[in-house]
Design a protein around this nucleic acid. Sequence first.
DNA 1: AACTGTGAACGTGTTCACAGCC
DNA 2: GGCTGTGAACACGTTCACAGTT
Lengths: 221, 221
Amino acid sequence: MSSPRKVSEPTVRRLSTYYRTLEDLAASGQETVSSGRLADAGGLTSAQVRKDLSVFGSFGVRGRGYPVLHLRDALKGILGVDQDRPAVVVGAGRLGTALASYPNFSARGFHIVALFDVDPARVGEHVGDAEILPADTISDWVRRHGVCLAILATPAEAAQEAANRLVAGGIGGILNFTATTPEVPESVNVRSVNLSIELEGLCYAIRESGLWESDREGGAS
Amino acid sequence: MSSPRKVSEPTVRRLSTYYRTLEDLAASGQETVSSGRLADAGGLTSAQVRKDLSVFGSFGVRGRGYPVLHLRDALKGILGVDQDRPAVVVGAGRLGTALASYPNFSARGFHIVALFDVDPARVGEHVGDAEILPADTISDWVRRHGVCLAILATPAEAAQEAANRLVAGGIGGILNFTATTPEVPESVNVRSVNLSIELEGLCYAIRESGLWESDREGGAS
DNA sequence: AACTGTGAACGTGTTCACAGCC
DNA sequence: GGCTGTGAACACGTTCACAGTT
């Protein structure tokens, strides 16, 4: 099939947004959609959309547009979300449990099948359908159940240890929410979301453009 | 001061990581650090580090490196995290409350001073030091307390309405965790973290590089 | 006429390489 | 010698513009 050499990360990101838009269009009964329309939905240009899609093949019909259902299914396959994907969460703190029950994950075919925590007191609790299991069983459990995806939400100090266990269990990818970047073999995909960095970046942008509404606190005007 | 015309977003992101590394170095008593060392800590190149820093001025000493404390303080100021920043959370669901009590935020000078929710049953509850308030008081409250930062963690359907209220209250920036991208005036900074897209991107990467450990479920080997 | 697919032009961020200073 | 600061070279992603298709 269409397995292009190298696709840029921004492109894959946008593919996800196209996929969402196409789902909506499909639900509303639209049969075709133009690159311009897809672009508007995501705040992009039509050329960008066409370029992104052209990387994977010719899905459109010149003069007419893209067939919604076909393109949606194609993207589903390309993104690898064409079947339900089990995932585990490591770290059953507030963030971990919130992510484990995040409705948009299950809506996208991701199902949290287990959580892990070092705290014995938490073991046995349930979060949705998933049970909290002891952290020292991660490797066995992940391997036995053939889980490829993990969400890492431990404190920073525990992140590397947890990552090691996931790797030992043969994990395919880790969505990392810890403040560190764990070291893993090249073959394991890690994508990090650092919440503090996002907030700091926003902070910079605010200060940059315009001023703080109040740079000294308490000042109502 | 050093207010360069335009700094790329990737650069600002990296600045945050340098800042973290510098804090660690400061704690461990290091007095100077080379660009190479800073680079290693974040998986970058030394040239990258020097370029990033040079945008804001000359912090280093040729032949010696960068003075840890001075550079740390400079970055603190550049990132705008040199003073405590109050922030509010809109949407007191699991994700919202988890973010409200996220320890790394407070460690970085971000303090959640209030949450807001449409559900009257939640109003009055406390999350850490912050109280959950009614969503229809957002504008007033934000304006009265001069809050510039908001974390948006409502369901997608409620996101635009919540954003409108924040904007009406004079918010400076929104860290958006909803599945939509709310429309706001140009002057308001929005940074979106779409968790599903991150997971889908990871999914793509796994499938791309190597294969799934098990592409059909249940298969132990 | 409407719209896709794509090479070519452009812009932006990264890496190189070296002059300059300690 | 070690290391910074920076122009110049490079790589990569985006936008343009148009030929090609229905």
